[in-house]
Design a protein around this nucleic acid. Structure first.
Lengths: 244, 244
DNA sequence: CTAATAGTGTCTCTCAGACACTATGGT
DNA sequence: ACCATAGTGTCTGAGAGACACTATTAG
C-alpha cells in the first residue's frame, strides 16, 4: 500500500484486475454432503460445472457481493439470507486462473440447511445440488477452492458451534450428530456425542414443549435450537483427526 | 464466475480494481509482540504508519507479491524468505477503504524470528518494528487487518506448531514458552508447558550435542530445533481462552 | 550465600472413549 | 415380537492444572 502504483494511480493506465466472488455452498442431504454448482453456459469451460459466483460491483464489498450471489443462486429471500452462515475462505489469484483476463476471486463458504430445492430466480437457472463425494472436475480452479472449503468446514466443526448452521431451526441431537458424521466421514459414539454437546453451555438449548419428532421409526427425539455460543471449549476433536 | 461481467469481458470497459497485498509481519522482541510498520510518505494518510505492502503485479499471484514485499521490507535475502512462515489472512474490499480508487487488498500474516534490524533496501527506508501493544491509529483499515492478524496468530498457536516460527533455528524451551506467553498475554506453568511440548511428537527435537546456552543467568538450557510436525493434537489451549 | 532459570516428579480433576443398559416408538 | 432410534449410567485411561522439589549457573 505504500509502494507507488505502476504508472501512479491512474485507474485506467495499467492492466486492470477483475474481482469476483466464488461460493462454496454446502448442505447435508440424506446423510451426504452436497454442494451447489451451476452449469456454465459460456465458453471458457462451457458445459462444465462451477461454483456459483460473480463480479464484485463497484459499490460493493466482496462480502456484500457474496451475500447477493448467495440469495440469487439459492433463490432465498433477502430476509433469510442474513441468517445463513457465510464466511470468507481465501482469495485465489494465480495469473492464469481465468484464460480471458486477470481475475482475482474471493472465495466464500456458506452453510445452509437442507433446502426444498435451489432453482434460483437469477441467471442460475441451472443451479443444482451435487453430492460432494461424487464430483467430476470443475471449471477454473474450483476443485482447489472446493477442497479448501471442505477442509475449512471440517476443521471449524471441531472448535465452533457451526454444525447447527446445517440444521433447521429445530433439530434433534441425532440430526446434529449426522452433520458431524457426514462432514467428517466418521461414525461417532452417540452417548458420548450427547454428553459433549449438552455439557457445552450455549451450544444447544432444549425446546421446552413436549413436542417431539421422529426421523423414521424409533423413539421420538427431543427438539433443540441453536444456542448463543459460537466457540466450543474444549473442542470436539474428530477421531484420529488432523486439523486445518 | 458464471455471471456476465458488466459490459462483458472487455478489461477496460468498466471501472477497474487495483489489487494490493498488505503484510502483518510479527516478531517477538524482549518479550513483547512487535509488528513491522512503514511510514507513509504520500498523501492519503501521509505521515501515518501503515502495514507494509504493495501492488500485485500483472504476472504475480497475491502470494508471490506478498513474498516479494516481505523480502523488500525486511531486507532479507531471497534465500531466507522462503523459509519464513507466511499465510493468507483474508481480503479487505470495502469500497471506500482507499480514498483514491477502488483497492482490494489481500492481507497476509508473516512470522519471523527476532531480526537484527529491518532497514529494507527497497522503498521501505522507514520500516520499523513497533510494540504491538502500544500502537496509535494506522492508515486505511490497517487497524482492522492488524487486529484480525493478531487474533489469527493467537488462535493458530493453540492447534499448530507455529510458535517455532518466531524462534531462531535453535532455541530453548524457555524461549518457546516466552512466545506463547507474549502472544497470548498470559503466564504458563513451566513444567506443564515442557511436558506438553515434549509429549507432542515432532513439535521440537533436542539438539544432541551437549552445547547449551543461557538467556542471562541461571542454569543453561538444552537447545532444540523445530520438528517436522505442523499440527498439535491435542491442542495446547490457552487458559480461560477463547479461540478464533 | 542468594537469585534466577532449567528440569523432574506427583497428585488430582476433567473429560473423552468404550460400552452396557433402559425407554419408546413403528412395523 | 422385533427393530430402530433416543436416552442414561459407568468404568477407565489420557491429559491438563497445580505445585513441591532438585539441579546448575551468575553474582
Amino acid at each position: 500500500m505504500n509502494a507507488a502504483a505502476p504508472q501512479g494511480y491512474d485507474p485506467h493506465a495499467f492492466e486492470p484486475f477483475a474481482v469476483t466472488v466464488d461460493l462454496a455452498v454446502f448442505t447435508v442431504r440424506e446423510s451426504r454432503l452436497h454442494v451447489l454448482l451451476v452449469e456454465r453456459g459460456e465458453d471458457p469451460y462451457k458445459g462444465h460445472w462451477a461454483l456459483p459466483g460473480g463480479f464484485v460491483l463497484p459499490s460493493e464489498s466482496a462480502g456484500t457481493a457474496a451475500r447477493r450471489e448467495l440469495a440469487e443462486e439459492t433463490g432465498l429471500t433477502e430476509d433469510t439470507v442474513p441468517s445463513l452462515h457465510l464466511e470468507q475462505l481465501g482469495t485465489y489469484s494465480e495469473p492464469d486462473r481465468d484464460p480471458r483476463m486477470r481475475v482475482v476471486s474471493v472465495a466464500y463458504a456458506a452453510l445452509v440447511p437442507d433446502l426444498p430445492e435451489p432453482r434460483g430466480g437469477g441467471d442460475a437457472a441451472s443451479a443444482q445440488w451435487w453430492d460432494a463425494g461424487r464430483l467430476g472436475t470443475l471449471a477454473f480452479d474450483h476443485d482447489l477452492i472446493l477442497a479448501d472449503a471442505r477442509a475449512r468446514i471440517g476443521a471449524k466443526l471441531e472448535y465452533t458451534c457451526l454444525a447447527t448452521a446445517f440444521c433447521p431451526p429445530e433439530f434433534t441431537l441425532g440430526e446434529l450428530q449426522q452433520v458431524y458424521e457426514t462432514v467428517w466421514g466418521v461414525e461417532l459414539d452417540r452417548p458420548n456425542f450427547r454428553r459433549k454437546v449438552l455439557a457445552t453451555p450455549g451450544f444447544v438449548q432444549a425446546v421446552e414443549g413436549p413436542p417431539r419428532r421422529t426421523g423414521g421409526r424409533g423413539k421420538p427425539a427431543a427438539l433443540h435450537r441453536a444456542g448463543a455460543a459460537t466457540a466450543l471449549h474444549p473442542p470436539l476433536l474428530r477421531p484420529e483427526g488432523r486439523s486445518t
